[in-house]
Design a protein around this nucleic acid. Structure first.
Length: 548
RNA sequence: GGCCCCGUAGCCUAGCCUGGAUAGGGCGUCGGCCUUCUAAGCCGAAGGUCGGGGGUUCGAAUCCCCCCGGGGCCGCCA
């Protein structure tokens, strides 16, 4: 049992309800409960008096001392007991694993084919991968699903552009960039010559009707795009259990739309601009009348997403369906989930919404070619890491890649998902402070000590000063994971790793490990920190380096 | 107009769900620390009306209401 939880349970039983402890100011204790305030009213006593009485009941081998200050009950852990309680597990490679037992289908990354993945997709990719890894570490079945945007009117434009301007040579070299080039050219030309738009509409219709030439082109776009995406996924260490496309759900989407119509949950729009379209009736929920089937009978993202959702339920029988998608699609998901529930879907449906990713000094627009290539972001970071490693004489291509890529990953994960973030090149090449390299440098320092220590033994001593600060933080790891598991917020883990790294850097600068009389304990601390940082990096989809 | 998200030092940010002690960090600025396990580190200084107002409470950055500012969505696009 985790020492914090153990004491929390005791305090909760005294309080008569579930309470969480907090960390008191420097020197006042290791953990604190405002029990006096909570109990004073109930028993008509003064907070201090109530606290004193509550403190009397806090008896536990883990507690060396219980102090009352105002309404607070501050506890000091018995350091030996505390250390004993984490001695085995904190250095165990399975530290922090959970019992879980639920099944999740996690929809993340989901780029549009024939377009470069943009920074928003990068956020989805990294967030989703981290959530997947953490849920699975906590004992759940986490199924990663990449739901490709492989359908849409932009393919008409692309087909027109492809037929006119594609350069096969360039296409071989960098398919995504070439597809982007002709896509941008299409929109430039279309400004001068609006008939191109009409042509694009026709090509799209042909594609929808199954015209062999256009279907073949579309298949090629899809394959070329996947190749391009794979490059990024490989570098990020991202992998999916299932890859499907919206196009796989067209038939099913028609079917479910008609079913909704029969059940009276949808109706045919009768007047005005969308006359003849089948719309979901969500007026009662204040979610309008989103279109399910267009008046020409073709599907739209809502009906395809609905069909896809139902398929996910049938295919994987998950307890939770998680969508790691930008917050701007909030309304769409509320509509989607509402319709799904009306159809009897009884699973937990979660839109893990993340905020916009801005790029400093740039208005992103795929049409205008205003994009940031993810490869360029990774390369810039890796190059900067290489320079830094060259200076120290620690350079290796593998570690430069690990540290560079991880710095981008960490940058993405350190902010709370729903907040907007602004991508600045100087942040990606600034590796001091709250950054991936800060965490990895602590990790490398720990590894270096362990490398030199060889087979040296560890044994417990009463932790003092900075030793004790680290022991306390190491014990927090499972609680952090539990929180992230519950809220799908990897930034809490990222922040925790910064905190632990900080404690370790302080410790490192002020304490000698090897050769010190306290080496047996300190070596254990180094092992524990190394272990937690290693697991933590893996869970955040970072790549632990050997040296840096 | 309706709905959603955000607002914490010059800049970025944690804490908000689950109310509790002098609001933690980082960047940048200024000043220190490498004969000892890598200075991507450490130590110190300056920097705050937690957007504003009201309410609830013994106690509010945190909960409720109103307002202001920024962003997003409300399409037979995804």
């Amino acid at each position: 049992m985790n020492p914090y939880k153990e004491v929390e349970r005791l305090a909760s039983s005294v309080a008569g309800r579930d309470i969480r402890g907090s960390f008191p100011p420097e020197g006042k204790g290791d953990y604190a409960f405002p029990l006096g305030f909570l109990l004073a009213r109930e028993f008509g006593k003064k907070p201090e008096e109530a606290a004193r009485e509550a403190a009397e009941k806090l008896r536990h081998p883990l507690l060396a001392e219980v102090k009352v200050e105002g309404g607070y009950v501050n506890v000091f852990f018995d350091r030996d007991e505390f250390l004993k309680s984490v001695w085995e597990e904190a250095v165990d490679p399975n530290y922090g694993r959970g019992e879980g037992g639920k099944a999740f289908v996690i929809d993340y990354s989901s780029p549009n084919i024939a377009k470069p993945m943009h920074v928003g997709h990068l956020r989805s990719t990294i967030l989703g991968e981290a959530v997947k890894r953490i849920l699975s570490w906590r004992g759940h079945r986490a199924i990663g699903l990449n739901y490709l945007g492989d359908i849409g009117t932009q393919f008409g434009a692309l087909i027109v552009a492809f037929k006119r301007w594609v350069d096969e040579e360039r296409l071989r070299k960098d398919p995504i960039k070439e597809l982007l080039r002709i896509y941008v050219k299409f929109h430039e030309e279309a400004e001068r010559d609006p008939s191109l738009e009409e042509e694009a509409r026709k090509e799209f219709e042909k594609l929808e009707r199954g015209d062999p030439e256009n279907v073949a082109l579309w298949k090629r776009f899809r394959e070329l795009s996947l190749e391009g995406f794979e490059r990024i996924y490989r570098r990020l260490g991202v992998s999916f259990d299932v890859v499907v496309g919206e196009s796989d759900f067209v038939e099913e989407a028609r079917k479910v739309s008609r079913e909704l119509l029969e059940k009276g949950m949808a109706k045919i729009w009768e007047e005005g601009d969308k006359k003849g379209a089948i719309v979901a009736d969500l007026e009662g929920e204040g979610l309008n009348h989103p279109v399910l089937l267009k008046s020409d009978g073709t599907t739209i993202y809502l009906s395809r997403d609905l069909a896809s959702l139902l398929w996910r339920v049938r295919e994987f029988n998950p307890d939770v369906l998680l969508y790691v998608v930008a917050i701007e699609q909030n309304l769409h998901f509320r509509q989607l989930f509402t319709v799904a529930k009306k159809l009897g879907v009884d699973r937990e449906l979660v839109h893990l919404a993340f905020g916009m990713v801005h790029v400093e000094g740039m208005r992103l627009s795929t049409r205008r070619g205003q994009v940031v290539f993810l490869e360029d972001i990774l390369d810039t970071a890796v190059n900067h890491v290489r320079e830094e490693m060259m200076k120290r004489g620690t350079y290796s291509a593998e570690d430069a890649e690990r540290v560079g890529v991880s710095s981008v990953v960490f940058w993405m994960l350190k902010a709370e998902p729903k907040k907007d973030v602004t991508f600045r090149w100087k942040d990606v090449t600034s590796f001091t402070g709250e950054s991936g390299p800060y965490v990895q440098y602590a990790y490398v320092r720990a590894k270096n000590i362990l490398r030199k220590a060889g087979e040296a033994n560890t044994s417990p001593l009463t932790p003092e000063g900075e030793e004790w600060e680290i022991v306390k933080k190491v014990a927090l790891f499972p609680l952090v994971l539990e929180e992230v598991e519950k809220k799908y917020t990897p930034h809490l883990l990222a922040r925790y790793l910064l905190d632990l790294s900080s404690a370790f850097h302080h410790f490192y600068d002020h304490n000698r490990v090897l050769g010190d009389p306290r080496e047996p304990l300190r070596l254990w601390i180094v092992k524990a920190v190394k272990n937690v940082l290693e697991i933590g990096q893996e869970l955040l989809a970072m790549k632990p380096p050997e040296r840096m």
